[in-house]
Simulated scan of single mutants.
Amino acid sequence: MTTLTLAYPESTVHEATAAAIIRVLEANDIEPEVVTGPKSILATMLKNQEIDLYVSAWLPDEDAALLTPGVTPLGTLFHPEICCCIPGEEGAYTSLADIAQAGPELSRTIITPASLLPHMEKVLDAYGLAAAGFTLAPSPDAEAIAALNTVLTRGELAIMPLYQPCFLFHVGGFRILTDPKKALGNEQTARLLLRQGLRDELEQDLVDELDELMLSAKIISAMDYAMHVEGMSADEAAEAWQRGRLLPR
Rank of each mutant, 00 (worst) to 15 (best):
E121S: 08
A114W: 03
Q49K: 15
K218G: 06
Q49I: 01
G133A: 11
V24Y: 01
L206T: 04
E212A: 15
P60S: 10
S221G: 09
G155M: 02
A142M: 08
G103N: 05
R191Y: 00
A102N: 05
E143S: 13
V24T: 14
T153F: 00
T72A: 14
A27G: 07
A234R: 11
L77S: 09
P165W: 06
K122S: 14
S56R: 11
R195T: 10
I110D: 01
V151N: 07
G91T: 05
I51G: 05
A240H: 06
L157F: 02
L210E: 03
S233C: 05
G70M: 04
R23Q: 15
E10L: 13
L42A: 11
I219W: 02
Y54I: 00
M223V: 00
A64T: 06
W241P: 00
L59D: 07
G37I: 03
G88R: 08
Y93S: 00
L59F: 02
E212D: 14
A190M: 02
L53P: 02
D205K: 12
A183W: 13
A100D: 04
W58D: 10
E230G: 01
I22L: 13
G231K: 02
A20H: 13
N48G: 06
G103P: 06
E212C: 12
R191N: 05
R199S: 13
G231T: 04
W241S: 11
Q204H: 06
A132Y: 05
E209W: 01
G133W: 08
P80Y: 10
L192C: 02
A190S: 15
D200I: 00
G103C: 08
P87S: 07
A183P: 08
I41N: 12
A7R: 01
F167I: 03
A19N: 07
I82D: 15
E31K: 13
P80N: 11
L59E: 04
P118K: 06
P32A: 09
M120D: 06
A126I: 02
M232V: 00
T135S: 15
L193A: 09
A92Y: 09
G70V: 06
P180S: 01
A65P: 00
D52T: 07
L67E: 00
L246S: 08
P9S: 07
A19W: 05
M160C: 01
Q242N: 13
L116S: 08
L4W: 05
C84I: 12
I220W: 03
A142S: 14
I111T: 15
V151Y: 01
V24D: 11
E10S: 14
P248E: 13
A130R: 14
H228N: 09
W241I: 00
A97Q: 14
Q204L: 12
T5Q: 01
A142T: 10
S11P: 04
T135E: 15
T189K: 07
Y54S: 05
L25E: 06
N186K: 12
L184V: 03
